[in-house]
Write a protein that binds this DNA or RNA. Structure first.
Lengths: 211, 211
DNA sequence: AGTAGTTTGTCAAGAATTTAACAATCATTT
DNA sequence: AAATGATTGTTAAATTCTTGACAAACTACT
């Protein structure tokens, strides 16, 4: 049932949307849904939904549709929500703090286990039920706790140095909010660059050009 | 020179990346760059860059490449940075506050002119050099200041109501950080949904599957 | 039990996007 | 001033992604 390889990025990026839409359907008490109904909600085509889901196996039933709860669980399984990854966050400035407090890590199969900052005024502060640690403790912490993912909310000047240290300490994935593209050339290192400013400019362009 | 229509979304989404990479090149003092050099930095192909830029006109020169400063200005023009759009932000919780303080609006041709919240404890607070206003002032504010863009950092339960009020008051574009897809069915309304949690799940999937 | 009505899984067609190729053009060197 | 080398703009090919179509399979009704 697990044809888990060769999934294209567009499909992967739609999976979380399926997941949250199904969560919402569950909350509404909907027990079953057809591809065309779901397509209506998500502004996709029914065909695309069926094709997407079939990459992973046949979760539906002809003449019936999809069982909301089952499909939710299947996609959760594909996304690996039951397999918790440990996450640390570097830089508890405005964005860092917002992410630490606002993102529901556990719902997404992650566990935020450490906060770090270089600034003495922030070290020791309590954020999201955790004490902010000094950067000097970073390497030791990684060696003992072995986080897989690091969230970078630090200035560009520090980012590459910190990323190298973290890779050395076994971190494989980076969620980068710093204002530049983190391009790591090591094999097996995964980076997801988030540029809010770019998103705003895209909105602005679309606004100006009525797209 | 302005073939400004029929630009596909993938191209539009790359424009801000071109813009910030060119800004960086300028800062480094680079005067000219070829499509293949730029491709190397941005992890694109030279062919794609030439094709992208040609949608808007021939900014390069055979045998020479692109003048960094000129190209920066051209893309800035395409993105409309000189034409300032007025922006208001609704909901100054963790994310709202981070966006208000962290996003460089003016550099991107936007102007943050108002902050609003429903919570009495937050109203009156000073954030990013502005006083947070009560939601009751929203409609009057919009009628007098005519913002084009609204940033939504509010719970789902309030989002549709607020969006409707804003559309009624002339707002055309929404940058939505609430935890759901804002689907507006009015013509001419532009929405950019940002789901940080989805981005995290994509990273997690890629981590688990070594993509 | 048989029949009518749904809806999936899948294959094939169509669209969109990316990459490759190359003539035209310009810079630079001799 | 001519020749060489570089690099664009542009066309065509290749690839990827999305949509359409329909047989197979199931539900639900009579």
């Amino acid at each position: 049932m697990a044809k888990n390889s060769g999934i294209s990025l567009p499909v992967v990026k739609r999976l979380p949307r399926y997941y949250s839409n199904l969560e919402e359907l569950k909350r509404e008490g909907v027990l079953r849904i057809s591809s065309s109904e779901l397509a209506g909600r998500m502004k996709l085509t029914a065909s695309q939904i069926r094709q997407d889901l079939n990459h992973f196996g046949g979760f539906g039933q002809q003449g019936y549709g999809y069982n909301v709860s089952d499909l939710y669980n299947e996609i959760g399984h594909i996304l690996g929500v039951e397999q918790r990854l440990k996450v640390i966050l570097i830089g508890v400035g405005n964005i860092g703090k917002a992410i630490a407090t606002q993102v529901n890590f556990s719902k997404r199969g992650c566990e935020l286990i450490g906060l770090f900052d270089i600034d003495n005024k922030l070290v020791g502060q309590d954020i999201a039920g955790m004490k902010v640690c000094d950067m000097t403790e970073l390497s030791y912490f990684c060696k003992t706790h072995k986080p897989e993912i690091a969230i970078l909310c630090i200035p560009k000047s520090q980012a590459y140095g910190v990323a190298e240290r973290l890779i050395g300490a076994g971190v494989t994935s980076f969620w980068n909010f710093s204002h530049f593209d983190l391009n790591v050339h090591f094999d097996g290192i995964i980076v997801e660059n988030v540029h809010l400013g770019d998103s705003l400019m895209t909105l602005k362009y679309r606004t100006n050009n009525k797209l």
